[in-house]
Amino acid sequence: MSYDKDYDIIYEGLAQHVYLETSEDVQVLRSLAKRFSVRIFKEGDALWELSANSGQLHFILSGAFAEYLMDGRVPHLLRFYSKNRFAYSEDLILYSTRPATYTTCLVEARVASIPAGALAEYLMKEKLGGQLLTSLIELSMTEYRNTTYEMLQTSGIHRIHAAIEQFPDVLNLIPRKELADYLGISRASLFRSLKQLEHGKDAGTISV
């Protein structure tokens, strides 16, 4: 894929988070898009690590990642990032402190990234800068809200449905054991729920 095409996609992604009033706004945002650099990630590569001390804003062009939160020494799968989504550590971007989470590549990916320093320049100097980070943080908060809806369902099937609604590929991204942990249900319950889905009225729409 050509870099120009990538920059167009990054620009479109950024433009969803700011209100472009003038042609100058468009120009500034296009030049910000061109400051992203594109990299390939193989399965298991880290998008950011617990030991990272400099942050980046990432835009996923293809592939998928999982973000893990440490609880003591145990990592817990928190959420997924897939195509056309932004990914970043709030700790690194907002506070320049070591992150509480790390993010790993699940499916080979192409990712466009911009260092926090270059982003901060845009945030401070450009009038749309404040809008961009605010919008990204708000979107992230909404995603956590949606994931909380998933987890507040007491039935395994409802949890699976809610998870699929948010991450359509969730059943294919991770092994079943990890999926059961992610959904907060036992493996037996996961298999029962998946069987029920397979044989139930949803069989035509959900591939298990």
């Binding site: 939160l69 609880d71 817990h76 928190l78 709030e90 509480a100 943080i137 992230s140 908060m141 956590y144 809200r145 994931t147 909380t148 987890m151 507040l152 942990d181 992610y182 959904l183 907060g184």
Partner: peptide
């Protein structure tokens, strides 16, 4: 607020 939400998510899982 996000940090609180994600901490609670671990409990809900």
């Amino acid at each position: 607020i996000q940090k609180n939400r994600r901490a609670r998510l671990l409990m809900l899982r």
